[in-house]
């Protein structure tokens, strides 16, 4: 399965099933919770601070795959990220930020090919 290097249909079905089951459980969880647990301080605290941190970890994970062979390759990956953040902080429009970042990446990719 994992070490054949390519995902088989059975494995992919399992991936979809596991992800769907956990996602549904998470979405249904608060409706099954007791009132005390719903308003408990640690639950509220995690709810407030988890999302930003998890997203940041994912971004670092995605950038972690970047080969740091040359400064130019590093710049090609970092500059579009910085532009995306800058545009988003200024306009707070998700689609615009993503479109601008991707356009910058397309230009960077043309200047510094893989």
């Amino acid at each position: 399965m994992p070490d054949t290097g390519y995902p088989g249909t059975g494995y992919l079905i399992a991936v979809v099933a596991v992800a769907a089951a956990i996602t549904v459980a998470l979405r249904a969880a608060p409706f099954a919770m007791t009132a005390t647990l719903r308003s408990s301080a640690p639950v509220a605290d995690l709810g407030r601070h988890l999302p930003a941190g998890i997203m940041i970890i994912l971004v670092v994970h995605l950038l972690g795959d970047v080969p740091l062979g040359s400064a130019l390759v590093g710049l090609r990956e970092i500059v579009p990220v910085v532009v995306t953040v800058a545009v988003h902080l200024r306009r707070r429009h998700a689609l615009l930020s993503m479109a601008t970042g991707t356009a910058v990446y397309a230009v960077a990719l043309a200047l510094v090919p893989i």
Binding site: P51, I56, V59, V85, S97, M98, T102
Partner: peptide, 15 residues
């Protein structure tokens, strides 16, 4: 890059 940009936007927004 759309994939990376999506997470960058979500991280920025949540922060």
């Amino acid at each position: 890059f759309v994939f990376t940009a999506l997470f960058v936007v979500l991280a920025t927004e949540a922060t």
